[in-house]
Amino acid sequence: MVNDSAKIRVENLKAWYGQREVVHGISFDVHPNEIFGIIGPAQSGKTTLLKTLNRTLEFTSGSRMQGLVEMDGQDVYNIKDVYGYRRRVGMVAPLPVGLPLSIYDNVAFAPRSFGLKDKDTLDELVQKCLEQAALWDEVKDRLDSLGTKLSGGQQQRLTIARALSHQPEVLCLDEFSIAIDPVTTMKIEDVLMELRESMTIILVTNLIQQARRLAKRTMFLLNGDLVEEGDTEKMFSGDAANPKTNEFVSGAFG
């Protein structure tokens, strides 16, 4: 499984909340500039897995992890500048979170926090991120109104714009579409296809068809175990190696 060109390499990753082990030693690679799908029912460890990737699991009290997470061949748990590292990984949560700041400040918050003060550069960055998230046209005339007053779908795109604001190399989306309508979902999916040119995308999704539309390779997690990882098309055409995968994608459980 060792792949030197991997953007992210995870080996034998385990994670605990208190005494409860929720991820039981999984290993996988994510290639540069691909969309990597992660599917699985609730409680399968998907969100925890993402949290270990950007080192935010440590914010949950009582949690710990074990195993290797590498980005560009570097052990991320040995990186001293943890804030700098988190900036390299963009994270989009399942429910849209508009910070109670203006739309502009929502996007400019992270760049400002690591020292970007120049007004013109900020303006440019905010516009670029909002454009990339397909939100610019809808909000360009009211950048100073509250981000929390946007509709759910707009807030989710604002969340994506915010995740792009720190110019990440990897973008993780955690079930980004559960709170938004199908039209907006399709809009964001188009955005993702474009973003793939410039970054690596990890897409956790409950919509099996979404993984099929977007991801080249997909990983199926079940109760914290890696059931199967491989070519999406193969996995979804009823040709999966593990019968459980076939059952899940055909809707027999989950």
Binding site: Y83, P100, F109, A110
Partner: peptide, 19 residues
């Protein structure tokens, strides 16, 4: 709100002060 801010590499204190 805090998680969203931490996810962006913003420190705890900056999160407290800003959000």
């Amino acid at each position: 709100f805090r998680e969203a801010s931490w996810n962006m590499g913003v420190s705890r204190w900056q999160t407290i002060r800003g959000v």
